[in-house]
Design a protein around this nucleic acid. Structure first.
Ligand SMILES: [Zn+2]
Ligand SMILES: [Zn+2]
Ligand SMILES: [Zn+2]
Ligand SMILES: [Zn+2]
Lengths: 133, 133
DNA sequence: TGCGTAATGTAATGTTATAACGTAGCAATC
DNA sequence: GATTGCTACGTTATAACATTACATTACGCA
């Protein structure tokens, strides 16, 4: 059916997949503009929204940046561990933690729809470097 | 010792405490400008940073907004449940969830320093309204 | 008192995100 | 085949959020 925007989505996803670290929307835009100089922010944000909805991309809320999903699963709530040294992000499925959170919040009648779980810290290799300078 | 900035911090905290829903930095700024019309964004961001560091204020990363801490405890990682209907936020201490997350992430050598745990959904009263229109 | 330094004030700018509105493409109906 | 209605898309502008850079001030201390 619609091909214009789906191509944008494919391209955006390809750009995000090439990177191991998250990209801001405007970094993605800059990449896209190499082929399509006049592309506007809105186009990128729409593509990102669609990809997120489809579970192909995660937004890192504490970073205002985006990363391709590395898990095959559909519609999952992931734990995103962000290294503040090197910027790399590790994605971990954690259904039991999500479950525990939902239960906890549910005690007061809150009904969660979306989970934002991000850890900021240092990855294994960056912490090792720190020890031996 | 320093009194200029600490007064700003007190005022910002008072503004955030009056509200049950989070405020953006610029909303806080607008409030502050009623008394000090020339106050600049930087001043607010500095005060917010200090208050966050002191554990008196939380930033809602998925909302780019701030809320006064409702817990008495120092230096805690809270679960923040945000109602997307009415904007109210509920703060829950959840040491066991935080622990579980740290353990989980630690399996790959990641060392978490800060935890961002936000739930988006509907609070009890908003969900009830929805049922009976 | 004069100096060094850390906190604060101020202005400008950078970055992220959305609003508002018009247009293209396509399918159903007449 | 024209008309209508729907939805996705393009375009422009602007709103909203945040930081950099540098000048100024306060304050402890020699
Ligand atoms: Zn994923
Ligand atoms: Zn790292
Ligand atoms: Zn708190
Ligand atoms: Zn509510």
């Amino acid at each position: 059916m619609n091909t214009r925007g789906q191509q944008v989505q494919r391209d955006v996803l390809a750009i995000l997949r090439r990177e191991r670290a998250p990209l801001s929307a405007y970094k993605v835009l800059a990449e896209m503009r190499r082929a399509t100089p006049k592309m506007a922010p809105t186009t990128i944000y729409r593509a990102l929204a669609a990809l997120i909805k489809a579970g192909r991309v995660h937004k890192l809320e504490s970073l205002n940046a985006f990363i391709a999903c590395r898990s095959g699963k559909q519609d999952h709530s992931a734990v995103l561990s962000i290294c503040d040294e090197c910027g790399q992000v590790e994605e971990t499925a954690a259904p039991e933690v999500v479950e525990a959170l939902s239960t906890l919040a549910g005690r007061s009648g809150f009904r969660p729809v979306r989970h934002v779980i991000e850890l900021r810290g240092q990855c294994a290799s960056c912490e090792n470097e720190e020890v031996s300078p």
